[in-house]
Design a binder for these strands. Structure first.
Lengths: 243, 243
DNA sequence: GATTCTATGATTGTCGGACAATCCGGCAAC
DNA sequence: GTTGCCGGATTGTCCGACAATCATAGAATC
């Protein structure tokens, strides 16, 4: 007789509590927005002390599975916000000695097809959002900080127009990582602003027309321009990114 | 006189402690492998209670910034392991109602250029690893579970051959998400195994020859085949992924 | 009756302390 | 040199406590 044993649940109690709650969230037994019982109540249910529960909650919180909604003490279930997990990815990449070139190469690969998909799938709302973002870039060009923010925003709009969450999420950490260096470029390279503006305009137009090839081409050019920008700004692309 | 005020640090103490330690890690003031002081000592240094420190540690631990190395009680600084953050991303995508098609589309975009880059940048070791992985797939074909594992492994080898951490990390969650459904395909579709094997062989060959176009073409075909596989296995690609 | 104030209770954030289990390092015994 | 044992350090968990915050219900006021 061969008996199959389940893997023994190792590890400290706070981990088991976190796993138990986390599993309920991932299987949607607990739905988004639903509020968890109070800590004391959880402690009672799990048969552990409140401190133990709290450690578990901290873990789930930092995974973005729980959040505290404004004006409520009780934790509620949440889907991890994009920016939140993107930040985690960015940090991980930083520590893995990622270079500017690595990130740029990833953009090279990712963005043109995203633009193409966006040209295919964009709705009228996507278009409006994109045009608002490009307009904001034109208006806020003076302040480098704003210019960078709006450049990222345009990327986000385009990725959003694909209606594919995976693509949006894949892009996000790259933007986060590049923003600082992008700012340096915009600061140092005079023609950067106008070239970015031109690219935005053509991308916008291509998406409006639903012209996939055009969208892809302009995005390729846009990303390639970044490489020129790094050169002109005197940034070594082999340099490790840092905070 | 205009005085600039720093933003007031809001939030509970455990967050501030976590931020303080996390910042040291991200700026590399604490280097990888370095061991943190004991909890009591940290509590003394920060002037808070040990429970508070522990909550902060749980958070950093779940971000992958700290880990407990085998046989050591003290926490040590770590760079978040790829699989760890990929799991976080997978969970997030799950909760964001990602469909099989979304993930597949991302693969469609990502993998062919990865294969191309790999053909360009692969070293002899990469090649050896890849060939070992394809061989393992051939050997373990019988067990569907193993077959899936090795299929992913081949993808990982190829991404590894690009020597671009960003690409490897971008790919990882996609593999994690697709593995279950891939297994269904291999289970149900007879010719799946051999077609995957063929693709592996050609990819391997292309990488050996440094033939970028060939690598890309075969990867395109490989990924496109997945779509066929879903169809043949009767899996609706518009279906939400779930655990 | 509607509104404002207040008391009350629930809940979190933080603290103090405690103790068993485990692990490290050193030291003695073999 | 290896083995076994002991003391100290460290974690995991518990108990209990209390201030601050917030919601709610109920009382007081207009």
């Amino acid at each position: 007789m061969s008996v199959e044993f389940d893997q023994i649940a190792f590890g400290p109690a706070y981990r088991k509590v976190a796993d138990a709650i986390g599993e309920r969230i991932l299987t949607r037994a607990l739905r988004e927005g639903e509020r968890l019982p109070a800590e004391t109540e959880l402690a009672r249910q799990f048969g552990v002390h409140r401190s133990t529960v709290r450690e578990a909650l901290r873990e789930l919180q930092s995974r973005g599975l729980l959040e505290r909604r404004a004006g409520s003490k009780l934790m509620s279930v949440s889907r991890p916000p994009r920016a939140h997990i993107a930040a985690g990815i960015s940090h991980a990449l930083l520590l893995h000695d990622v270079t500017v070139r690595d990130v740029w190469q990833a953009l090279t690969i990712l963005e043109p097809p995203i633009a193409r998909a966006a040209a295919r799938a964009r709705t009228a709302e996507d278009l409006a959002a994109l045009e608002a973002a490009t307009a904001a870039f034109g208006a806020g060009m003076a302040d480098p900080k704003e210019a960078v923010r709006h450049t990222s925003a345009v990327f986000r709009c385009i990725a959003g127009a694909t209606h594919n969450t995976v693509l949006g999420l894949a892009q996000e950490p790259l933007l986060q990582l590049l923003e600082p260096s992008l700012r340096v470029i915009i600061d140092r390279v005079q023609q950067a602003r106008s070239r970015i503006g031109t690219a935005h305009a053509h991308l916008s137009e291509a998406l409006r027309a639903g012209n996939e090839v055009q969208a892809m081409r302009w995005m390729e050019r846009h990303i390639a321009d970044f490489s020129r920008g790094y050169e002109l700004a005197g940034i070594d692309m082999a340099l490790r990114l840092s905070l």
